[in-house]
Design a protein around this nucleic acid. Sequence first.
DNA 1: GTTCCGCATGAATCGATAG
DNA 2: ACTATCGATTCATGCGGAA
Lengths: 293, 293
Amino acid sequence: MELRTDLYLGDCREELQYLPDNSIDLIFTSPPYADQRKSTYGGISVDEYVEWFLPISNELLRVLKPTGTFILNIKEKVVDGERSTYVMELILEMRKQGWFWTEEFIWHKKNCFPGKWSNRFRDAWERLLQFNKNKKFNMYQDAVRVPIGDWAKNRLKNLSDTDKMRDNAKNGSGFGKNVSNWLGREMVYPTNVVHLSTECSNKNHSAAFPEGLPEWFIGLFTKEYDTVLDPFMGSGTTNFVASRMSRNSIGIEILPEYFEIVKEKLEPKEPLLFNSQVNINEHTEYSRRYAIR
Amino acid sequence: MELRTDLYLGDCREELQYLPDNSIDLIFTSPPYADQRKSTYGGISVDEYVEWFLPISNELLRVLKPTGTFILNIKEKVVDGERSTYVMELILEMRKQGWFWTEEFIWHKKNCFPGKWSNRFRDAWERLLQFNKNKKFNMYQDAVRVPIGDWAKNRLKNLSDTDKMRDNAKNGSGFGKNVSNWLGREMVYPTNVVHLSTECSNKNHSAAFPEGLPEWFIGLFTKEYDTVLDPFMGSGTTNFVASRMSRNSIGIEILPEYFEIVKEKLEPKEPLLFNSQVNINEHTEYSRRYAIR
DNA sequence: GTTCCGCATGAATCGATAG
DNA sequence: ACTATCGATTCATGCGGAA
């Protein structure tokens, strides 16, 4: 089977229109944050942010498969000593568009930006908002299991009597646990907190997230030969990881500098890296579009 | 100097009225979540939650000192496969009341037990929303410093020449560093992610948080002999910690069972535990109110 | 090879100063 | 008064060169 990586140079508000309905399994993206990275992107202001993003999320809703997932990496900045509210407003508006806000994962950054301020600490986390078209969606939990933590070794060493049988929760929630089921278990399911370092060495794109981030969500929400979309490709991390994990992918990037860098990295110089044939096709009907098959 | 712990039995919507304006340094509380603890506040539904909470937050705004802080521990529950939005709506409405939404801390729960759902992972974090009356407020950052990471042992062993002076970043961001400033430093400032284990020991109150949580915020936002308020006292964790840390405190609880437990624990049987004289006064004019001085 | 060590860098924010 | 610009501050990581 052949793997495709399709790159589009242009504004995703336009380029998304060329993608067919219900064709994407996972959208993983980190859009420019409000008023940040002005030099590269336009620097959308806090006030205009929701208005700017809603047409894009509407197109994303169209191209996503009914069983697909949209992961949005975002964090509000501080404005005048206060956290801005545009992310919350965006969530509320996207729900009106028809999105389900299924979950909010936390990316706990191990090495966050340094600094000292009199009224706040360093910001060490970002939001990973999970949106879906339906309440049923594909999720491959076994793909992201992690080694059981040290706490379990101690917890499981001496089991009490209640641990050996099902111990129903006191609060009547209906949940219970049978601790002895975990004996000998090596791998457990993770939580909704992802703990990764930011990468220090990406010289091409200052806002790059670590590869572990898309890797985790691609494994969790897609299987091989599924299609992953990043409408704000940047330095292409999502697409490289998708390719490495044998997923088709689509990337859209508005800035030619970044686009060229990604294009060159995907060129056949290093075909083995991606374990698939890489070609560049320039579609004349969409002059600025490239398809790498 | 004498330390007071005042306990009120009753609905905080009423009892808060007896507290004077601008008298509280820190409000730390974990209100009943929507549709949970049904028996206590009548099971506030998700739809009514904001409407129910706003009169309370309005009273809290009144009793808080201008330099004080309100920390609200809350997490939206899943309703019909989707995260509910009442917390976001509450933040937006509280801002209209005059609150500043200064920051959102994350409580990363280290040891939640394994569990499995088909479409989501275990929830390992909660929000700790910081609200203030003013952009200037008291913050005692040194009280919560943490040991410097292991990286420092190697990094600071032998300083190069550039380490001994200020070294400005090459990219013109204005950022620079003087590594020699860190010599001999043992403790550094934490981030806005609080990393604590949950305690399983409290069987009397299902919504209990670990003592470390109020401890961290009490240390960060109050000094000795300041006053801490928990309008949803529950099993009294906030008040016990405040007492241990030599802060005055006020607790309001609607359920007599919980109220009695806290009252008994604070009684003079164990006066040394709190390093202050503990007395119970029953005020006849407010028949259900107790003052423990 | 393998380990050690130096070093640049990162979705930031505040307060003071200047226009 | 209000906005724009500028300087100051900080910790953890991975890379690359050296031992």
